[in-house]
């Protein structure tokens, strides 16, 4: 997962941010911004949803809308988010990344019961809405693709990058 994370393509948000950043001294008017934002909102439509989710989360319960995930897949990983590509990825992405990074999902492992507990905790304390029919789909995806791995009491050292230490 780690090396795949490093291959992540730049997010659209970053492109927007850098364009704003580079031109910050020129922004006397709004024309340029409007252009940038048009691009931004065209390629990043869930921004609308995120804004409205923040103000009225309960209305966004199950209708996450179509989200294209075919813009970049390498070795079965959706490059932009790092999610494993499988059934129900769209609903997982649309729901989980409304509030937090996909990395918070992909670095965790749990069985179906464990993932259910995390959803309940987020609903109880973090303002996560009722997921309705989406919940079962999300749990199917998480329990299959992010199941626990046995680590034992102490794992062996892995990913050692050997280098010559000059005396």
């Amino acid at each position: 997962m780690a090396e795949l994370d490093e291959d992540r393509s730049p997010g659209h948000l970053r492109l927007l941010a850098e364009r704003i950043g580079r031109n910050v001294n020129l922004l006397s008017g709004v024309t340029l911004l409007l252009g940038v934002l048009f691009v931004f909102l065209t390629v990043f439509p869930e921004v609308f949803q995120r804004v409205f989710v923040a103000s009225a989360p309960e209305q966004a319960a199950t209708d996450v809308g179509p989200i294209a995930v075919d813009e970049g897949i390498v070795n079965g990983i959706h490059v932009e988010t790092g999610f494993i590509v499988d059934d129900n990825l769209e609903v997982v992405r649309g729901t989980c990344t409304a509030c937090h990074s996909a990395k918070l999902v992909t670095q965790n492992r749990a069985d179906r019961e464990g993932w259910t507990k995390m959803i309940r905790w987020m609903q109880k304390t973090q303002k996560l809405w009722d997921l309705g029919d989406s919940e079962a789909l999300i749990l199917d995806y998480l329990a299959k693709n992010y199941a626990p791995q046995k680590k034992g009491r102490r794992a062996r050292l892995t990913n050692i990058e050997w280098y010559d230490l000059t005396p």
């Binding site: 780690a2 994370d5 997010g11 948000l13 970053r14 932009e80 937090h100 990074s101 990395k103």
Partner: peptide
Amino acid sequence: ALLLEGGDEDLLAKLGKDKGLIVLNDKP
């Protein structure tokens, strides 16, 4: 907040962090 948060491979540079640090999570 939308301008500041979200996935970003240049996050470490923006935050003034050494490039050898490991991003576990970019939001938060």
